[in-house]
Design a protein around this nucleic acid. Structure first.
Length: 413
RNA sequence: GCGGGUGUCGCCAAGCGGUUAAGGCCUCGGAUUGUGGUUCCGAUAUGCGUGGGUUCGAAUCCCAUCACCCGCCCCA
């Protein structure tokens, strides 16, 4: 067994016994997001590398060290590490800015990130998410968050924490960055290596740091003062207040987390995360926010936008496992041709049916039936002669014999 | 990139230097030639991640190597 080919590290087969769960997530997404007017979009899994370096941002870990990139006929191509950039690309390319706002899109599919796999983190993983284009008002942010919360509820997930924050717009963010850098300056040498890099390149990301020594620095009163201060401008502040108001009115419980900074460069104003306590260190099931400058940055007209993405594997790990579906019926008969015909007939009537392809002994066939099906359809000599079938309910053990024509009707009883 | 852990049948798993490598589940066959899910019997690893070494003798000790898992970082 040592020379068999195995799945690539960080990738997984979704086996038949697990597929129910995936269908469930996809079906619920379709149902819930449709209610909010979102339409499904499917974009390619590969895109030009530049889309991500320009879209996601070249100071992010995702772009710097986690992309699957390869060259093909003088082009640099990348497996999508996330789907917002791709959807934005499609939005621009297909002239969706001409559509009347809002343009609401949802998607699901595989994403690829070259990271060390661990619990809740794979190299190929799946996300389901939404993007809403064209609305600047906080109603959009609120509606997107609401869609996320209700999707999670529809899956049966109720006890999740919603955290929100506002990063402000580029203007007020500049001011915040300056202040943050200033107050941290005396501690620069004590910061971890990563934070020292972030200090220059992307000071906002400092607040994401999980290193204890850094956290301690951030807890110092003068640093806290900067973090907690509202450097966001009046308009941004108003936008944020409005969002909180809508969330309250809509009955969404949330907490404010001033330290919440999404790792992607395109966010401004609203950012949010939905977390679970049952996921270990990869505890975020959803993350998202507003990205008002991304469309423009990728060559489109200025278009405000909000969206989120959820990790489907993480959602599944929070859900109770589903029993695999049983067949409606298993035809039991030592008369193979009759069994074959019967199975086909039932299939044409819309049932999921199997029969024994190898003509095993009667008792073996029944044993198999009891394992895989709800009903055994028994076709013995008597039944065939009388144009009847015996229907055995395999859970209750009851059996009745009816005319063939009534077979399906009787099974539903 | 840095820390920690584990590798014995399809799955779970005992064994920790000594003749033929427990056991359970699953699968297959039989008891039971048309009535299952209970029970009983039987079958299934010349093999213990891979390559070396130590030893009269190794799944068990040593070295190397690989794979996977967990944590950090980052994210969904």
């Amino acid at each position: 067994m040592s020379n068999i080919i195995k799945v690539l590290k960080g990738t997984k087969d979704i086996l038949p016994q697990d597929i129910e769960m995936w269908h469930f997530l996809e079906k619920k997404a379709e149902q819930v997001f449709s209610k909010y007017g979102f339409k499904e979009i499917r974009t390619p899994i590969i895109e030009v590398t530049e889309l991500f370096s320009r879209g996601v941002g070249d100071t992010t870990d995702i772009v710097n060290k986690e992309m699957y990139t390869f060259e093909k006929s003088d082009r640099s191509i990348t497996l999508r590490p996330e789907n917002t950039a791709g959807v934005v690309r499609s939005f621009i390319e297909n002239g969706m800015s001409r559509l009347s706002a809002p343009v609401k899109l949802w998607y699901h599919g595989p994403m690829f990130r070259y990271e060390r796999p661990q619990a809740g983190r794979q190299r190929q993983f799946h996300q389901v998410g939404v993007e809403m284009f064209g609305i600047e008002q906080a109603t959009a942010d609120a509606e997107v968050i609401l869609a996320a919360v209700n999707y999670l509820k529809a899956l049966g997930l109720h006890d999740l924490d919603v955290e929100i924050n506002s990063l402000g717009c580029p203007k007020c963010r500049e001011e915040f960055k300056t202040n943050l850098k200033q107050v941290l300056k005396p501690y620069f040498d004590e910061l971890c290596e990563d934070c020292q890099k972030r200090y220059e390149k992307n000071p906002l990301r400092l607040l994401d740091c999980k290193v204890e020594s850094c956290k301690k620095i951030f807890e110092k009163p003068e640093v806290q003062e900067v973090i907690k201060s509202d450097f966001i401008c009046d308009e941004c502040s108003e936008h944020y207040t409005e969002l909180k108001l809508y969330l309250q009115k809509m009955g969404v419980k949330f907490s404010e987390n001033k330290l919440l900074v999404r790792g992607l460069d395109y966010y401004n104003r609203t950012v949010f995360e939905i977390k679970s306590n049952n996921l270990g260190s990869q505890n975020a099931v959803a993350g998202g926010g507003r990205y008002d400058s991304l469309v423009e940055q990728l060559g489109g007209e200025h278009t405000p936008a909000v969206g989120f993405a959820m990790g489907m594997e993480r959602l599944i790990s929070l859900l109770p496992t589903k029993e695999p579906k049983k067949l409606d019926a298993y035809v039991v008969s030592t008369f193979q041709t009759d069994a074959f015909l019967m199975a086909e007939e039932l299939r044409h009537q819309g049932l999921n049916v199997e029969f024994d392809l190898t003509n095993k002994k009667f008792s073996k066939q029944l044993e198999k039936a009891s394992k895989v099906a709800k009903y055994a359809i028994i076709l013995g000599e008597d039944e065939i002669l009388n144009h009847q079938v015996s229907i055995k309910n395999l859970e209750q053990g009851k059996q009745i014999t009816v005319d063939r024509a009534n077979c399906v009707k009787m099974m539903s009883l």
